[in-house]
Design a binder for these strands. Structure first.
Length: 582
RNA sequence: GCGCUUGUAGCUCAGCUGGAUAGAGCAACGGCCUUCUAAGCCGUGGGCCACAGGUUCGACUCCUGUCAGGCGCACCA
């Protein structure tokens, strides 16, 4: 019973942390007066001729110690004598300290992968991380403009969850905007009932476009829409019923796409959810003297050094704005969660808005960390997507095209798969390729949409990673069929450079995840997995596994199994599902 | 005008918050399937990291300025 409890608490420590702890121990011994370990970092080397891991500690602290970097490095290197993990430590250049791991230690580490979760206890993980993503506008179909927020946000949620944070994924739906006045007018005048029943959002979108078109020549329409909106906001039962109907129909459609994409949320609080909180927020801002009335509106002005435009929180007609809603949302979250931080995933055109909102919330003393994760919006080479222009690519069409292309490749490459499995693989490959296309990039600048680039199946793509996984799984099945299933306790041999560097690469997975979390960059995980696959495929091509003599075979089999395990875990964190055969 | 952001191979992008000789994919060219899935692997060519200063043992990375693209800048979200 007791041992069981203890075992359950075991966590897999990051290799860097193991080595840093050992280094700290040596420092305490040789420099008893030294106490500042804040610059003590161990990291993997970029080139194996400089060892497996290295530290620049000697160079970064030479000044405080009043010694020459090379001498310090020399003394630390000597301290590693007799280490269980480090076989030898070498001083190089101006004071680099290069560490070479013992093969048995590295082998043991690889064997341990997957047995227990990684130990991220050195990170401050108290409280909830709220991730705000996807957030489509009700009554509009989701199109490829929603892709990045949805996919990146969902991945960030998974990354934090993997590290042991308590995460809340929130879909901040646009369910309370001026579009409802227009929709109600359109609904009463131009609705095609049959089309509405057939494909509700498409029809709502059509009447919305119809409204925009007609109101250009008929200014009275806009006024009618305003009246309807006001009625809705004042609780008119008929308009409220329509509003709810639009939301229900929209959510039903969104649900299909989210399910298909493997995206989920914990809460679906739209803007309307915070409506009741907004008057109070504005009042507080006024009472505290943070906001003031200007040109009949309520506005927060910032100090000139902030370089921020004034933030409007209430219009002269009394209505609230986007910023008010986001402030109310922050108020709600800090009152209902013990917040670790809030993360907003939106396109970079909203950067100023979030800077304003964050600054105002600081003025209110709402100091929980908040991060805006911006990305460049997507456009065609010849212009922007716009629902009004009608040139959007709906998300389901994009996925359909991706799956179609994947299916064609499967028919060509693996014609003998059963039909049903082909369909399943095509679905996973197609959807995975689309998601990964966004997850593998870190660019903040705009993206020009291109079918061939988005649906490429070569290079740094989901299909390449999935293929590598399927390949390993196939090998493991063959081994099992031959009565030589992978042994968890196999001794690891690093007879070739390819094996050793692959093993070292495996130690970097939890580091990649951590860095991705710190910088809200799923692409760091994508890059890592791609590198891992390149390493594995080189190994696979150069060295036999199943044909080797038994001891080496079991070693390589276990190494392969660990690669497949990390791949599956990593893809899962990115929200990409892999397949056993493809 | 003010602010944010981007500038790395022909194209698309990485570059681990300052480390050692700047990487990958695509495209081009040349190889590798009677061997564990060729959606793969190996090799060749291709670079004033926009430009100019500064900070230091060390800069693609940090600071300042210049040039160029994108975006935003009071009652939309």
């Amino acid at each position: 019973m007791m041992t069981c409890l203890i075992l359950r608490r075991i966590r897999m420590r990051l290799m860097e942390k193991i080595l840093e702890a050992e280094l700290a121990g040596i420092l305490k011994k040789i420099y008893p007066d030294f106490s500042d370990f804040s610059k003590l970092f161990v990291q993997k080397t970029g080139d194996n001729k400089f060892g497996d891991y290295q530290t620049n500690f000697a160079m970064t602290t030479a000044k405080t110690l009043g010694r020459k970097p090379v001498e310090i490095a020399r003394e630390i290197a000597d301290g590693f004598a007799g280490s269980e993990a480090v076989e030898r430590a070498e001083v190089a250049g101006p004071g680099f300290l290069n560490l070479f791991l013992r093969a048995d230690f590295l082998g043991g580490y690889i064997r341990g992968i997957g047995a227990s979760p990684y130990d991220y206890s050195f990170v401050q993980r108290d409280g909830a991380v709220v991730v705000d993503y996807s957030s489509p506008n009700i009554a509009k179909r989701m199109h490829i403009g929603h892709l990045r927020s949805t996919v990146i946000g969902d991945a960030i949620k998974r990354i934090y969850r993997f590290m042991g944070y308590d995460v809340v994924g929130d879909n901040h739906l646009g369910d309370w905007g001026t579009q409802f006045g227009k929709l109600i007018v359109g609904y009463r005048n131009w609705l095609d009932r049959a089309a509405y029943e057939q494909s509700p959002i498409e029809e709502l979108e059509r009447i919305y476009v119809e409204f925009e078109r007609r109101s250009e020549n008929d200014p009275a329409l806009a006024e009618t829409a305003r009246v309807e909106l006001k009625k809705l906001q004042d609780g008119d039962p008929v308009n409220t019923g329509l509003w709810k109907e639009f939301i229900d129909l929209s959510l039903k459609e969104y649900g299909k796409i989210y399910t298909r994409m493997g995206v989920s949320f914990d809460t679906w609080y739209g803007e309307s959810f915070y409506h009741g909180l907004m008057p109070g927020v504005v009042k507080t801002l006024m009472d505290k003297g943070i906001a003031k009335v200007s040109e009949d509106a309520v506005v927060v002005f910032f100090d000139e050094s902030e370089h921020l435009p004034p933030c409007l929180v209430q219009k002269k007609d009394g209505a609230f704005l986007y910023a008010t809603s986001d402030l109310a949302c922050i108020k709600y979250r800090r009152e209902n969660y013990k917040l670790n931080r809030i993360i907003y995933v939106t396109d970079d055109r909203q950067s100023d808005h979030f800077r304003q909102v964050f600054r105002v919330s600081e003025l209110l003393g709402w100091n929980e960390p908040k991060s805006h994760v911006p990305f460049g919006f997507m456009k065609f080479a010849d212009g922007m997507f716009s629902t009004r222009k009608g040139n959007v690519i709906p998300l389901d069409s994009l996925l359909e095209e991706a799956v179609k292309r994947a299916r064609a490749v499967i028919d060509e490459k693996n014609p003998n798969l059963p039909e049903e499995e082909k369909d399943n693989v095509a679905e996973r490959v197609g959807v995975g390729a689309v998601k990964y296309a966004d997850l593998s990039k870190n660019r903040v600048s705009m993206v020009i949409f291109d079918w061939d680039k988005m649906l490429s199946f070569e290079g740094n793509t989901a299909p390449y990673l999935m293929y590598t996984y399927a390949r390993i799984r196939s090998m493991l099945r063959k081994a099992e069929d031959a009565g030589k299933a992978c042994r968890e306790d196999a001794e690891m041999f690093f007879t070739e450079d390819a094996e050793r560097s692959l093993a070292l690469l495996l130690t970097q997975f939890p580091v990649a995840v951590m860095k991705a979390a710190e910088t809200f960059s799923p692409n760091l995980i994508a890059d890592y997995l791609f590198e891992l696959c390149q390493g594995y495929n080189s190994f696979y091509n150069a060295l036999p596994v199943l044909k080797e003599k038994e001891s080496l075979m079991y070693s390589r089999l276990l190494l392969s199994e660990r690669v497949s395990r990390i791949l599956k875990t990593g893809l899962d964190i990115l929200g990409v599902e892999c397949v056993e055969r493809m």
